Amino acid sequence: MMKMRRTTLAVLCCVAIAPLAKPALAADVYPDKTITIVVPSVAGGAADAVGRAVAQGLGKQLNASVIVDNKPGAGTTLGTQQVIRMPADGYTLLLGLDAALTTAPFMLAKLPYQPKTDLTPIATLATLQYLLVASPAAPFHSVTELVERARANPGTITYASGGEGSVHHLAMEAFQKEAGIRLKHVPYKAAPQGFLDVMGSHVDVMFIASGTAVSPIKARKVQGLGRTGVAPISDLPAMAALRDMPESKGYVFESWFGLLARAGTPASMVGRVSTALAGFMKSPEAEAQMQALGVTLTFEDPSTLAKRIDEDTKRYAPVVAKLKEQSAKP
């Protein structure tokens, strides 16, 4: 009888301990299946290129399969929402774009997620600047000519973007404010689609990631009017900075990409990804890949990425408020 009681007690203890041991075991073997990095943009853009480079490097470091899933739409919020809906098990990560995390809360009446509480930062990956480009058929060939024509004909020159609240949208709104002009917004599902229409002369101008625009500018498929960043672009050394032009004096606009996981993902798994990511991002290979993509490798820890999100959210709030005020006018 005593032996039976001891056996029963041992079984009960095993049953009680099993649920507690399971998460620890899952963390120990992580990753034991494919990891997906969701990129909230179409294939072919800067975000997609960075996501694929990181996926390849991370896969080598983890000795695991890491793939990219493009989920464009809703100003980059659709892909972000998809990650939040998935289990917090470390197998679905987000290539976070600043617009989806810092401006979307102000742009959308009802955002289906809260960046600060629904996502866990892992690292900043890269920063980039944009180029102001014009269609090959545009009747202006410089920022000065663009501004002069826009002032003479308000609301007639069109500009493309990756959607309401996207970085391309914000960049142009800030530029218009600086130059004292008003253009007509033509939003697209994703920026590369808008860029194709600029090259096809269906839309007049737009801001596009430098890595995407360099080759078409060199091939004269699109006109390059100016850059938004401070540092020169090695492949286009003659491209002037908008901040140095009298029509847009002081104008600077740069963007960033980060890697995040759904909130609640075990810290051990986040740490495993962070360590593996550091192994890749600090390598000469990563530096060369990012440079080839036209972005600046900017590897920062989780707390620094969290600080970026917080500071940019505060910085963009008044810009977005102005946009909503303008859209509310008849």
Rank of each mutant, 00 (worst) to 15 (best):
I309C: 06
Y316R: 09
T296F: 01
A317M: 08
A292F: 05
P302L: 04
D301V: 00
A306T: 06
V320S: 01
F299L: 10
F299I: 06
P318W: 07
I309Y: 01
V295W: 07
E311H: 14
E311T: 14
I309W: 00
A317I: 00
V319Y: 03
G294Y: 01
D310S: 14
V319M: 11
T313K: 02
A321Y: 04
E300D: 10
F299P: 07
V320K: 02
D310H: 14
S303R: 15
K322V: 15
P302C: 04
V319S: 04
D312P: 09
K307A: 14
A306M: 10
L293K: 00
K307H: 12
D301S: 08
F299C: 05
T304R: 09
I309N: 04
A292N: 12
D301H: 02
S303G: 13
T296D: 09
L297W: 03
A321R: 09
G294K: 00
P302M: 05
P302S: 05
T296G: 01
E300H: 05
D310P: 03
D310N: 14
Y316D: 01
S303E: 14
A317Y: 03
E311I: 12
V295T: 10
P318S: 11
A317H: 04
K322S: 15
K307G: 08
K314V: 06
A292R: 13
F299K: 02
I309S: 02
V319F: 06
D310I: 07
A292V: 02
Y316L: 09
T313H: 02
E300L: 06
Y316V: 08
A306N: 12
A317W: 01
